[in-house]
Amino acid sequence: MYVAVKGGEKAIANAHALLAKRGQGSTDAPRIDYPQIRNQMGVLVSRVMAEGSLYDPELAAKALLQAQGDVLEAVTLLRSYRTTLPRFGVTIAVDTVGLPSERRVSATFKDIPGGQQLGATFDYTHRLLADELHTPEVATPDVPIDEPMPRVTDLLGADALIERDRPDAGWTDPDPGDLTREPTVFPMSRAERLQALTRGDEGFLLSLGYSTQRGFGNNHPFAGEVRVGEVEVEFHAPEIGHAVPIGRIELTECQMVNQFVGSADQAPQFTRGYGLVFGRAERKAMSMSLVDRTLRHQEFGERIVSPAQDEEFVIAHADNVEAAGFVEHLKLPHYVDFQAELGLIRSLRREFQERHPAEASEAPAADNSTRMEANA
């Protein structure tokens, strides 16, 4: 028998109470607080900030604690809070050219101006579970991490081996649209695409970026440069008349160098893929730069042969808040919709049985004792 869930508001209140109890865990174990999450789970906090589109490590840590570690739920909480904040204006574009890097590596040249800075990375760890965590002493770096380091792509640009980062000397970067305030319209500008990608789900972009390297996107990448460091943010205050610094934020920037064999009107050269993400998020920035280059197929006359090259497919499905909401809403009551489809299927089955009486006579009889009857 089908029994409808009853209780209404009381059942929902009890579900909330049970959720809070599960979140507390064992009463014998010490409670963790959001400062511990912020300080010891920086990579996770960075992901929530990037996909939540709000740079605030403290709020991201609080969201993770409230969401019991559910990243998508934490991202949803952060985005919901973001919509309540007043908007005072737009900051000046951050200068990542001189980004003082805690970590800066390149897979294209061994010896680069300023040197390779390994920084904090899992790249060279053994990936073995440790019995207990310990913090070894860190040696003083040979090169000060605050020393500006020129971009690796500038080395290729000096010999015209890579596309320019801007079309010509007189070109100015137009103000991009704001995807959080304006509806998405396809086709998008590259700046709008990058906005969507930096807010996109890391796992989704990682899978798409991986697909482009396996032949589904014609992508032959080299990690030109990956940087992690803090950059100063400035805001132009009209009442003051000049820009004032309002703080520093940690960013991860990636420039991919991609092979391009040329076309009828373009010489063979390397092309660029770009990624910029809040916090320490190298995998996300690299995946973003791979997908960014793949979505630039029209600029280079490349055919669309894979999902990663389809702008609407990528952008429309990269937002994990929208995706999670649409998938998880399937858990909520759809009684009326199902009644309609149930009636339709029964009607179609009767028509089929009338057209094929022999097959209908061979079909097993329904077990009325276990048949689920839905109440209107």
Rank of each mutant, 00 (worst) to 15 (best):
D95R: 05
T96E: 10
T96G: 10
V97F: 13
V97T: 12
G98M: 00
G98F: 01
L99M: 15
L99C: 01
E102S: 08
R103E: 01
R104I: 03
V105F: 07
V105L: 07
V105T: 08
S106H: 00
A107H: 08
T108H: 05
K110H: 04
K110D: 07
D111W: 00
G115H: 00
Q116F: 01
Q116T: 05
Q117F: 08
L118S: 01
L118P: 00
G119L: 04
G119F: 09
G119R: 02
A120V: 14
F122C: 03
F122S: 13
T125P: 02
T125C: 03
T125I: 07
H126I: 08
R127T: 05
R127G: 08
L128S: 03
L128A: 12
L128I: 15
L129M: 01
A130P: 03
A130C: 02
D131C: 06
D131K: 12
E132R: 15
L133E: 13
L133W: 04
L133V: 11
H134K: 12
T135H: 06
T135W: 10
E137G: 07
V138S: 07
P141F: 04
P141S: 04
D142Q: 11
V143M: 03
I145S: 07
D146V: 02
M149W: 03
R151F: 10
R151K: 04
D154T: 06
A158T: 02
D159V: 08
D159N: 02
A160E: 10
A160D: 14
E163V: 15
P167H: 07
A169N: 14
T172H: 10
P174A: 07
P174G: 09
P174V: 04
P176G: 06
G177H: 00
D178P: 06
D178C: 06
L179Y: 09
L179N: 09
T180E: 15
E182W: 07
P183S: 08
T184I: 15
T184N: 06
V185P: 05
F186H: 10
F186T: 13
P187M: 03
P187D: 07
P187W: 03
R190C: 10
A191W: 02
A191I: 03
A191Q: 15
E192F: 01
E192P: 00
E192M: 14
E192Y: 04
L194V: 09
Q195F: 13
A196D: 08
L197G: 01
L197E: 05
L197S: 00
L197Q: 12
G200Q: 03
D201N: 15
D201S: 14
E202R: 15
E202V: 11
G203H: 14
L205M: 15
L208E: 06
G209D: 12
G209T: 13
Y210P: 00
Q213I: 08
Q213H: 06
Q213P: 00
R214F: 12
N218S: 10
H220P: 01
P221F: 11
P221S: 10
F222G: 08
F222L: 12
R227H: 03
V228P: 02
V231L: 09
V231G: 11
E234A: 09
E234T: 13
E234P: 07
E234F: 15
E234G: 04
F235K: 07
F235H: 10
F235Q: 03
